[in-house]
Amino acid sequence: HNGKLCKLKGIAPLQLGKCNITGWLLGNPECDSLLPARSWSYIVETPNSENGACYPGDLIDYEELREQLSSVSSLERFEIFPKESSWPNHTFNGVTVSCSHRGKSSFYRNLLWLTKKGDSYPKLTNSYVNNKGKEVLVLWGVHHPSSSDEQQSLYSNGNAYVSVASSNYNRRFTPEIAARPKVRDQHGRMNYYWTLLEPGDTIIFEATGNLIAPWYAFALSRGFESGIITSNASMHECNTKCQTPQGAINSNLPFQNIHPVTIGECPKYVRSTKLRMVTGLRNIPSIQYRGLFGAIAGFIEGGWTGMIDGWYGYHHQNEQGSGYAADQKSTQNAINGITNKVNSVIEKMNTQFTAVGKEFNNLEKRMENLNKKVDDGFLDIWTYNAELLVLLENERTLDFHDLNVKNLYEKVKSQLKNNAKEIGNGCFEFYHKCDNECMESVRNGTYDYPKYSEESKLNREKIDGVKLESMGVYQILAIYSTVASSLVLLVSLGAISFWMCSNGSLQCRICI
């Protein structure tokens, strides 16, 4: 991952900044910058967002509201009850120091605090018919004063009620008058409520006091790749198909172990950190130390980045220098085999997901714990399936590479015959000098055995068991695999060879 928040398929997220979902939807004055928000790819909250409900109280069923919003990608904020005409018999300019803005008392931008007009609070009834052709999110509140005197001074009615009804919602609220500790300079409380109004449905408000009335509502448009994440990451000019709280993932790998919460087309989250597919040879310690064997393909974004291909070729060293050249036929066979294998694994496992966190309130801790156990169970199954699949494929890959290298080895052996000696570690020792032209003939299969047989015969008789390297004779190393990324691999195959001279070296080696 890149540690950044990015656009998702070209669409920017909605960053709530210092506000949370509650503050944004109710219209906390400190969240005025969010009022123009219309569309987004996903919503970003920060872990310690401080601006929620400015007048103390709870947004009821907040967790369910977050779940609903996680599939919303755009909205239209509109005046559901026009301020100047909807409440002619009531005062609608209630403000509070708890919702101060720029040093002055204020109130929510989407709600109206209705109080008595003169000395009376006549029963009010108002309704709205949803003609938007889509779901409408309606929010309101109920004020709970701290004393009967406060109730009387604001609403005149000691036994007030609030009723809200639609086809799918029907509740009646009565204020709970009680002494409470002071929070944000208030002994009173406000509880906030919401409902989704279906197209064509009607919502009716009736009250004799204590109503925090809707002013603006939201017509919602769903987008199934949307979601809500909690993150401290910063926004950058970048684009992605998959976003996590820790950063964007741009990967076609089937798995990731970065974060379980994802938005967009994302690899499946697994616990494993070692889900690797081999593309090189079986481990040979001396070669492995030099980083030549054991190439791997990573299938977990965050564990290993991208696929690494092994390729086969020849390396030689003689009086004229040293050089490398790919054996294109065996390399292409290996590439085709690995590509098919990788595609097979991805096809089997690479279903892209959006995974969002589930919200539970403080009273639902047991449910949250149960949900976590269920999620953990599914996660263990996914991890096991992934590891088992790759384990089985790896064994076949190792066998496949062994065969490829063996074929190259036999190709060289059949040409050199007794003009060189096998020394048991995949290397041959020449009994004759071999210049670049000679080396090329070994690589392309045109090695002239009779041409060098007499010199080889004489050297075999002279050496008589002495280690060949100390006599200045020449080696050919018969097994060799270097490691390159897919891009470098293609470039390498396009070149005939490249040279690395070893000044004054008397050794001649050709490596497979």
Rank of each mutant, 00 (worst) to 15 (best):
392 L>S: 08
288 Q>F: 07
301 E>G: 02
364 E>T: 06
500 M>D: 01
357 G>P: 11
285 P>I: 04
456 S>K: 08
395 E>M: 07
508 C>L: 13
355 A>W: 14
392 L>V: 02
474 Y>W: 08
423 I>V: 15
501 C>V: 15
374 V>C: 06
404 N>T: 09
499 W>F: 15
273 T>L: 13
231 S>H: 06
347 E>A: 15
425 N>M: 13
406 K>L: 10
482 T>W: 10
329 K>F: 11
322 S>L: 03
480 Y>E: 11
308 I>L: 13
469 E>W: 14
441 S>M: 10
478 A>F: 03
393 E>Y: 08
323 G>N: 13
435 D>L: 06
365 K>S: 03
364 E>R: 13
315 H>V: 04
511 C>W: 11
504 G>Y: 00
332 Q>H: 05
478 A>E: 04
282 R>M: 06
300 I>V: 15
297 A>R: 03
233 A>D: 07
336 N>V: 08
492 S>W: 08
397 T>S: 03
396 R>G: 08
511 C>K: 03
263 I>W: 02
243 Q>F: 07
276 R>W: 11
415 Q>K: 00
431 Y>P: 04
288 Q>N: 12
448 D>W: 10
409 Y>R: 11
478 A>L: 14
277 M>D: 09
407 N>T: 15
475 Q>E: 13
427 C>K: 07
480 Y>H: 14
232 N>Y: 10
315 H>W: 11
392 L>E: 04
320 Q>E: 12
257 N>Q: 02
424 G>Y: 11
476 I>Q: 01
478 A>N: 04
492 S>L: 14
426 G>K: 10
415 Q>D: 01
339 T>C: 01
301 E>F: 06
503 N>R: 11
239 N>S: 13
289 Y>E: 02
356 V>P: 02
303 G>P: 06
366 R>N: 08
305 T>E: 05
343 N>W: 01
324 Y>D: 04
445 G>H: 06
394 N>R: 01
346 I>Y: 02
463 I>Y: 02
359 E>R: 10
450 P>R: 14
418 N>G: 12
495 A>C: 10
290 R>Q: 03
470 S>Q: 12
344 S>F: 04
269 Y>K: 03
450 P>D: 09
